[in-house]
Write a protein that binds this DNA or RNA. Structure first.
Lengths: 126, 126
DNA sequence: CGGTATCCGCTTCGATACTG
DNA sequence: CAGTATCGAAGCGGATACCG
């Protein structure tokens, strides 16, 4: 069994360590949204661009490149004309999303209450 | 039961929605690290500054202000001289961290493998 | 001790145009 | 269709100084 406290002892959260690097990739503004979309299954570039509302081509490209390099997302380029490229989670990516989705869903369900706390919202959930 | 797909249908991830706002607060570079530290229990300002290695006073201040406003962190200012201020998770915050810690631990354990996948990394810090 | 205020560099990001 | 290249604007974040 591994706890946060134990990991911290070993320096797993030091300033330039790999944990922080992965955290930055995976918990980034767009990284989270792309990963959530891919947790539904395989998607093409154009689908991702449409489904992750607001993302620019530049950010989609760099986010995907990062996640592919990290072995979290798999890129499959079919040799057709016109090009056809698909993205899906690797097994590691599915493992990751098994842990992330409960968190995302918890946040999504309570988000309205949370941002409303300081501004008079509906009474508290929970 | 709530799934990501269902939430998405309802617009829970639209461009300027509260879900994205909370996501940005909670999954931010420093937000994650501050929350992990507070998951150990109550900490003073100075302790947080030391334990979250690399954070500046400005970022610690703004991160804490954000999390307090979101009702995730509780701030307790003792009326002593010199001042003594403590931060801890609220019940909502503990709920959140119950979901986030498994994710963080998964990442921390595998981080070295992940960043090494594409680049054959330099040996680990620590 | 526990912050806030100000300045400012430097990365990040988005928009647009272009390419295989 | 699936990207890359370039550029300008925005804001993140650090350093410093100062206040309650």
């Amino acid at each position: 069994m591994v706890s946060y406290a134990e990991l911290r002892e070993t320096g797993a959260f030091a300033p330039a360590c790999s944990t922080r690097v992965v955290l930055d990739h995976v918990m980034s503004r767009w990284g989270v949204l792309v990963l959530c979309t891919l947790s539904d299954g395989t998607h093409r570039w154009g689908e991702l661009r449409r489904e992750v509302e607001g993302i620019s081509e530049k950010m989609l490209a760099s986010t995907l490149r990062q996640l592919v390099a990290d072995g979290i997302v798999h890129r499959e380029s079919l040799p057709t004309v016109p090009p056809h490229v698909e993205y899906c989670l690797t097994e590691r990516g599915r493992d990751l999303m098994d842990r992330m989705l409960p968190l995302i869903e918890w946040i999504a369900v309570r988000a309205d209450d949370i941002v409303g706390v300081g501004s008079r919202a509906t009474p508290n959930a929970r």
